[in-house]
């Protein structure tokens, strides 16, 4: 689980496509929830899933989408959309 989490968090940082980075962030947060589950704290796991897998990536993706001019606009080499 920790390996998945580390891979996911590295992918969040190095991914060029912002929406994919948000998706990897969702995976990272779910694996953190799975670590809670391994500690047998089901309540924290379920709250983690509800809040961090259901809501936070959606907000991120919202923010990314609303700041782009076209649908799959990627920042150029100089940065900036």
């Amino acid at each position: 689980m920790s390996a998945f989490e580390v891979i996911g968090s590295i992918l969040v940082v190095i991914n060029k496509r912002m929406v994919r980075a948000a998706f990897w962030l969702a995976m990272t947060l779910v694996t953190i929830g799975a670590i809670y589950l391994l500690f047998q704290s089901e309540f924290v796991f379920l709250i983690q899933i509800i809040v961090y897998a259901g809501a936070v990536p959606v907000l991120f993706v919202f923010g990314i989408m609303l700041t782009r001019r076209t649908i799959m606009d990627e920042p150029g080499p100089e940065g900036g959309p």
Binding site: I50, A53, V58, V61
Partner: peptide
Amino acid sequence: LGILFIFAAFSLAPL
């Protein structure tokens, strides 16, 4: 925590 589990599964769909 069955009800909470069901809501967690429900809340994954918007993503």
